[in-house]
């Protein structure tokens, strides 16, 4: 009895320092900003008109849709590239995997502004790739930057290391004996992957997907530098509403909506992990 209460108190005490930072620097300002959006533009009282106005705006709806679609696309591409990479690094030995292990971490150390700039010089029309192709006789070049494609490519470039590391760490935790055991009873590679690896690596997978989504969804720099004029990712839209269109309340309302979407994804993660923990031994 006392022991679990002591554990509870200790737990809370240890969690307190970062929690205080979170409360005073994010939660309190955020709550006061949300309260602002629940008042109508003029006068007092509570109302959801601000949200109705934003969601009723066709262009803003398309920005929201665009953000979600681009984020999902970027998460999917990153995931589909990273998981095989992580698997390969986990199960293969040799020169090539060692080189690969260094290669995939490189984007980690490049600041996002520089990564965006590098991508543009590389992929823009009359940039590196198109010049090489032009010299080889291929004159047509698809527009790869200043649109959704550019955003997805750059986001993928910057997030591959993160995904591979987290997934890889999870894969390391899977004992070889399990894999060998599966092989011994005749399971093929796909079967092993689906029945053994995927479930055991579930938590890192969920962490990766969640953090990828939240990070990409709210990003500003990459869409600002590499994106097109419209539709825009919400990070850019919000900034424009605040600084260019001088509509602070609208900017905060959009911020709350963006937050709710990101929070929903986070909640999905927590729910899925909790369910798994309940099923664990």
């Amino acid at each position: 009895m006392t022991d679990s209460r002591r554990q509870g108190a200790l737990g809370l005490a240890l969690v307190l320092p970062p929690l205080l930072v979170l409360i005073f620097l994010i939660i309190v300002p955020a709550v006061s900003a949300v309260i602002d959006t629940l008042h109508p533009p003029e006068g007092a009282g509570w109302t959801l008109t601000n949200y109705a106005l934003i969601l009723g705006n066709r262009v803003l709806r398309s920005d929201i849709r665009f953000s979600i679609v681009v984020t999902l696309a970027a998460v999917a591409v990153t995931f589909c590239l990273s998981y095989p990479l992580a698997l390969y690094l986990r199960f293969t030995k040799g020169r090539l995997p060692s080189l690969l292990a260094v290669l995939f971490t490189i984007p980690l150390f490049v600041p996002v502004v520089i990564a965006s700039f590098a991508m543009i010089t590389f992929l823009v029309n009359h940039g590196m790739v198109s010049t090489v192709l032009y010299r080889m006789g291929i004159e047509w070049f698809p527009p790869l930057v200043y649109n959704a494609t550019g955003i997805v490519l750059t986001e993928v470039w910057t997030t591959i290391p993160f995904a591979v590391l987290i997934l890889g760490a999870g894969l390391q935790a899977i004992d070889d004996a399990l894999i060998d055991g599966a092989r011994d009873v005749g399971a093929g590679p796909l079967r092993t992957f689906v029945s053994i690896i995927l479930p055991l690596n579930a938590t890192p997978t969920m962490i990766t997907l969640t953090l990828l989504f939240i990070g990409i969804f709210g990003s500003f720099t990459i869409p600002y530098l590499v994106g097109g004029n419209a539709p825009q990712m919400l990070g850019v839209t919000m900034t424009n509403y605040l600084t260019q269109y001088l509509r602070r309340l609208d900017a905060v309302t959009i911020a709350v909506i963006a937050f709710l979407i990101a929070a929903a994804v986070g909640a999905l993660y927590v729910v899925s992990v909790s369910r798994r923990e309940r099923h664990a031994l």
Binding site: R58, V59, A230, Q232, N240, Y241, Q244, Y245, L246, R247
Partner: peptide
């Protein structure tokens, strides 16, 4: 004036490039 200017920028995004009707 600045208020109109802010609206010009917003409406440009909506009407010219944003695909609103």
């Amino acid at each position: 004036n600045p208020k109109y200017l802010a609206d010009i920028k917003r409406l440009w995004h909506e009407q010219v490039v944003g695909g609103a009707q």
